[in-house]
């Protein structure tokens, strides 16, 4: 679905991305982690074809981003920006969702159906003016308009920034559902809890290099790697590692609770 082969990119003589290679297959959910300035957003832009690599190749659904227009790649992939206000340009919520559909779905009846479905899924008022919505609602609207055309690849640049816990969970549940339906997700996040709860694979960027790539449980326990990338592990794996012994394997609250219960039963 997404393949990067030896991709490098720089600006004004400064190397931002250095020889990065990875492949995301259909239905994968990967979190892209790293400190500010590690190159996460640049990597997302390269993956969408908004930036062209200085070296190497980026393939989205088999299409080389250097050879095709970004607008053509957008037929297959959806990109959510950090700031929803960059994406919103129509004077109504329904119109905003229709924009992406008009560009990708030729049948007007099908467009209408998808728009209604999306509005219901996100509980959005079709007539509301997007700029009268709260920051969280605008983020939801931006995500809704990205998801409505049904992209096979979702590239999300910090989709939960500026959202409260409830909005964050709403957004993540919708993304997870779309992932279960077969969409591939590449998500940038600074929230280690969100990344560990929803992603199954983690890519760690450190100063433009891919410092780690593996299953979420493996990467979130690799303290040396996380420290190198200036990241802190999520709370439960951190607690599990500090307790050690029989608790060391716990990754979720449920697992930790079960191990604690077993331990108590053993003592009794």
């Amino acid at each position: 679905m997404l393949r990067l082969a030896e991709v490098s990119f720089g600006l004004e003589g400064e190397r931002i991305i250095s020889k990065i290679s990875f492949t995301l297959g259909q239905g994968e959910f990967a979190a892209l982690l790293g400190e500010n300035g590690a190159g996460k957003s640049t990597l997302c832009r390269l993956s969408m074809g908004l930036l062209k690599p200085a070296a190497g190749r980026v393939l989205v659904c088999g299409q080389d981003t250097a050879a095709v227009k970004t607008s053509a790649i957008a037929r297959q992939a959806g990109f959510l920006f950090q700031n929803p206000d960059r994406q919103i340009c129509r004077p109504s919520v329904a119109g905003e969702i229709m924009l992406g559909l008009e560009l990708t779905v030729p049948d007007p009846a099908e467009r209408e159906r998808r728009c209604r479905e999306t509005l219901a899924l996100f509980s959005l008022d079709p007539e509301a003016h997007p700029f009268n919505l709260s920051r969280g609602e605008r983020q939801l609207l931006a995500l809704a308009s990205v998801l409505a055309p049904g992209p096979r690849l979702l590239i999300l640049d910090e989709p939960t920034t500026g959202l409260d816990y409830r909005e964050c969970m709403t957004v993540m549940e919708i993304i997870a559902r779309r992932n279960r339906e077969g969409a591939t997700v590449l998500m940038v996040s600074h929230d280690m809890e969100v990344a560990s709860d929803f992603a199954r694979r983690v890519l760690v960027l450190n100063r433009g290099e891919l410092a780690g790539d593996g299953p979420v449980r493996e990467i979130m326990r690799d303290q040396a790697l996380l420290q190198r990338a200036s990241l802190l592990p999520p709370q439960i794996p951190a607690l599990a590692l500090s307790l050690g012994g029989q608790f060391a394997a716990a990754f979720t609250i449920e697992e930790m609770a079960a191990l604690a219960a077993n331990s108590r039963r053993g003592r009794l």
Partner: peptide, 8 residues
């Protein structure tokens, strides 16, 4: 850039 990413 954001609109290009949407297919415009």
């Amino acid at each position: 850039e954001a609109q290009t990413a949407r297919g415009v």
